[in-house]
Amino acid sequence: MIDKSFGDPNLKMQSINLSAWFGSKQVLKDINLNVKANAVTAIIGPSGCGKSTFIRCLNRMHELVPTAKMSGEVLLDNENIYDKAVDPVMVRRRVGMVFQKPNPFPTMSIYDNVAAGLKLIGAKKGKNLDEIVKRSLEHATLWEEVKDDLKKPGTSISGGQQQRLCIARAIALQPEVILMDEPCSALDPIATAKIERLVVELKRDYTVVIVTHNMQQASRVSDYTAFLYLGSLVEFGATRDIFENPKNPLTEKYITGEFG
């Protein structure tokens, strides 16, 4: 078991002996991982290794699946987000999620897509909301491209722009951590490059955890990398070390393409 390292300002999240199941099938086994603040942590591993389940445990989305269960702890600023007293809605507000496929709300405008979450928590129309929408779109490096089309449907823009819109939607709620589940897998190389640049930008203000199948992407954007295999954490370390000199032969085999 890892130290909880209470008070370490560099740690934003920690999973402690985190295990997860779908029905009787265990998909995560005692994962102990530290997520550093204002850094990008990449989760890599072959299909079915538990990457997506892991990040869905980081904002209590895993429990939304009827047969799902988990054990262990997930600390956000040293507080266990699975504590009975903790409101899961508040957790998901603090720990936002961007999904594999861009999923703007299809009936809403670009503006409303960004404002939707804020309205749900009681924000009123007006200058303040306009400001937050603008700032969120700027943070997502989309403002210049859509500022004259804010009333157009969110689905009318390109796939890459839609994904950045989804990032703006997440940012609008002012989360502290942004989880990204293969955010570029449905995008072309140019849109991918824009998202990657954005991910690197975002870490100035947020902590980012990104699941990716693309190891070059992990090596480009992340500061730390975790390799999961068959539900277990095989290796975790600075991205440069993992990709130049992995300690575990399994990691070496996976990242050099000997299996996967």
Binding site: F243, E244, N245, P246, T251, E252, T256
Partner: peptide
């Protein structure tokens, strides 16, 4: 191939 690990070394 964008090599990594022992390939890169």
């Amino acid at each position: 191939f964008q090599p990594v690990a022992s390939d890169l070394r």
